[in-house]
Amino acid sequence: MEQMNLVATSTFGLERVLADELQDLGYKDLEIENGKVNFKGDVYDICRTNLWLRTADRVKITVGEFEATSFEELFDKTYDLPWEDYIPADAHFPVEGKSVKSTLYSVPDCQKIVKKAVVEKLKTKYKTDWFEEEGPSFVIEVALLKDTASLTIDTTGAGLHKRGYRQNFKGAPLKETLAAGLVKLAKYKAETPLVDPFCGLGTIPIEAALIGKNLAPGLFRDFTFEDWPFVSMETFDRAREEADDLAEPDRSLSIIGTDIDEEVVKMARDNARQFGLEDDIHFQQKPLYRFGTKKKYGKIICNPPYGHRLEEEKQVKKLYKEMAKMFSDLETWSIYVLTPEKNFEKIFGKKAAKRRKLYNGRIEVHYYQYF
């Protein structure tokens, strides 16, 4: 299959980081939009980007994009797209949807119209009136934004944040993709000591270790495209071989993760073990007041607890003041803190060199960077 229009989606605020990742992988002529980066690639690039992208949520094929202000227009223009180039006769092709500030605001109706148009188009290709849909999955999305409809097919399956190393947890841990974004924004290098004093399940230290050793985050998981007839196992194997060749598993790292919860620290160690990183990250049960380091230079990257109730907010603000006290001697270290607290600088007692708005799920957060 020739070059396709591909799109890598991301959380808001990480688009530039994602574009830098794509550039580092050799992709050019990138188009950055809110929550996504458009680029061109072939079947091999679908395999490669799913394996390598650390801050992307998904990689999709853009089948078409057009203006649509009526259901008739949505049907006709969807029908005109080359669905037969991608979807085989036995495919399972559900339609998902979303609509923002568009005339066609009813998402279920838009989904039905797109499904009908794709079915009618495929009928002409496969000369049949019925599709069993028992084969490989091709999830179609119709996304309407200000009357512009984007029709895509998901190549990924489970979101790219699901690396395969993290255990289920009752809390709301930091997504792997956002953690990787924090590490990327901190411009972490393998030779730099890194500490996360609120490591939780170890997501930030593990993502840093994957970056430090140049390990592709998608190496140990499955993808939807693996079952597609036009993606050969040989092509996917070639992408995996490239990832194996570029990995630097023997590179020495200095990464520490500490947390006050001993059970969570044990889970963090188990998570690191899934990627063979148990000897590269030193996890330890330790409260913040015992924090200390003899290293002259390094980076602290952390996501302290959030306070959602009034009493919790008081405790969190007390924690920020304790952080300021514990980090006060680290004048040669860079400190990076992710928090929803808009008055963090005032509580912390120091103005950040840089501040970036991000989203942790649906929570608006700020990344305070002290160089």
Score class of each variant (00 low, 15 high):
I335G: 01
E313L: 10
I335N: 02
F344N: 12
Q315P: 00
L319T: 11
I300F: 04
E311R: 13
I300P: 01
I347Q: 14
E311Y: 05
C302Y: 04
E331D: 14
L319R: 06
I363K: 05
D329C: 03
K346R: 15
I300M: 03
E322R: 12
D329K: 10
A324L: 05
F327E: 08
G349V: 10
L319E: 05
V316H: 04
W333Y: 03
Y320M: 06
K350D: 08
I363R: 02
D329Y: 12
K317P: 02
V316E: 02
R356W: 05
T339R: 04
E341Y: 14
M326D: 12
G349I: 10
R355S: 10
G361I: 00
P305A: 10
N360G: 00
R309P: 06
A352N: 11
N303E: 15
E341I: 12
A353H: 14
P304F: 02
I363C: 01
K314E: 14
A353I: 01
T332L: 05
R309T: 13
I300R: 01
Y336T: 03
R356Q: 13
P305E: 08
L338V: 07
E312H: 01
F344C: 11
M323V: 07
F327Q: 06
R362E: 06
Y336D: 09
R362S: 14
G361Q: 00
E341S: 14
M323H: 12
K317A: 01
K354Q: 15
C302I: 05
C302N: 03
A324G: 08
I301H: 07
K357I: 13
I301T: 09
K354D: 15
G307P: 06
E313G: 00
R309L: 09
L358Y: 03
E331L: 00
F348W: 08
V337W: 00
F344T: 11
I335T: 04
K351H: 11
P305R: 09
Y306G: 05
K325Q: 14
K318Q: 13
T339I: 03
G307D: 03
G349K: 11
W333E: 02
A324T: 08
